[in-house]
Structures are given as C-alpha cells and as structure tokens.
Design a protein around this nucleic acid. Structure first.
Lengths: 93, 93
DNA sequence: TAGCCATTTAGCTATATAGTTAAATAACAT
DNA sequence: ATGTTATTTAACTATATAGCTAAATGGCTA
C-alpha cells in the first residue's frame, strides 16, 4: 500500500479537506476559506493529497477545481479492512 | 477521532507490528527481532501504539507481552468508513 | 501592455519523529 | 550481593512537515 496515502490521511486538516470534497468539487480558494490558515498552507495540503492521488485537480479558467478521487479512497479503505479488519487475536492471557 | 491513532497507523513499521500482533500476543523482544532496527527503536514504536491505545502491554515475569486492542482498531475502521466510505461526489465536470 | 485575481512555489522557523548508542530499570538466577 | 536478561529511558542527530510571509506563475480583462 502506498505510504503516501497514510501520511496524507494522518493530518486532520487534510481529512477535513477530504470531507469537504465529499460534498462535491471545490476551488482551491473555496477550500482555503474553510480553514484558519493562510492560503499557501492549504495549497501545500492540497498538494500532499494530490500526490497521494486522493484528489484530482482541473484547471478551469482562472481557478483550480479539486475533486475527490473516490476510487483511491475506497481502495484504501478496502485495503485497511483486508489487513486490519476482522482481527481475532487470542484472548487467552 | 483520536489523532494519535492516525499518526500511529501512518508508519509502516507500526502497521507491521499490528499485523504481527494479529497472530497473537508477543513479547517486545519477539517483535523487535522481526525488524532490522535496534531494539529501543521498536520499543518507541510500541510506545506510540500503546499511547494510541492500539496495543496493550502486560508484564509477565521478565518479559513484557503486547497484544492487540482489537476493539480500538475496529472502532477506528468503523469511524473511517462512516466518514470516508460511500463517498458520492458529483461526477459532473 | 498593464493590472488584477487565484494559486503555487520559495525560503524561512519551529516542532515532531525515526533512527542511533549508552545508561537506567526491573525481574530472575546463582 | 552479583550477574544476566528483557525492556525502557535518555541524549543525540538527521529528516520531515506544518505554519508563516513574500515572490512567482498563469489566466482573465480592459
């Protein structure tokens, strides 16, 4: 499994970005406005998510529109369940 | 959701420790022997997992036995699915 | 062209963390 | 008491990353 996706998801700002994008595509500016951080800070977070392939960017005139890469997110969740779900460890001792 | 569990799970060595412990309880030494790192390094990883409440330690004579806290892991996976599973973003544009 | 707007990139600081070796702790055995 | 074993804690180094401000990029509009 891609290490990047874990790092990407391990930051709460980035998880909130993901949740925002579940509502639908949004511009970088719209996303940045939801947070108390400077816009370049959010830009870098977006870049981390993009490198992890969790979001897709698309230039639209003067804006950059981001949307979720639902597939990757689903694959990640699936992988997590495969590896860590249904854990039956011995309860003895 | 507890931030610690994300940080804990975002490291591949720690994920391998979790997978090892799915087989059953193991001593700190047994765990350390599975990795090419010095034992104190693994000890600190174990501590991170313990602080995230993902594993439980138990002193057994001269050894410390670690085992999975299956509940927490399951809860985490459940939370992930609630928040990030079933993502239906608009496919338009 | 000039200027504006949206966004990223660059350069910086502060903090966190993975790795190391050496020392401390704690329980057992002699 | 002394030594041995299992493990953690301490002290250090190197690297990564979140935040900032300032500058650069790229597309509009006039």
């Amino acid at each position: 499994m891609n290490e990047g996706i874990f790092k990407a998801m391990s930051d709460s700002t980035r998880r909130k970005i993901i949740e925002l994008l579940k509502e639908g595509p949004k511009t970088a500016g719209d996303i940045a406005n939801q947070f108390p951080y400077a816009q370049p800070t959010i830009s870098r977070h977006l870049n981390v998510l993009k490198n992890a392939n969790l979001i897709i960017d698309q230039k639209e005139g003067n804006f950059i529109i981001y949307r979720l890469n639902t597939t990757i997110l689903q694959e990640w969740l699936g992988w997590l369940f495969e590896h860590f779900g249904g854990g039956n460890n011995d309860e003895n001792e």
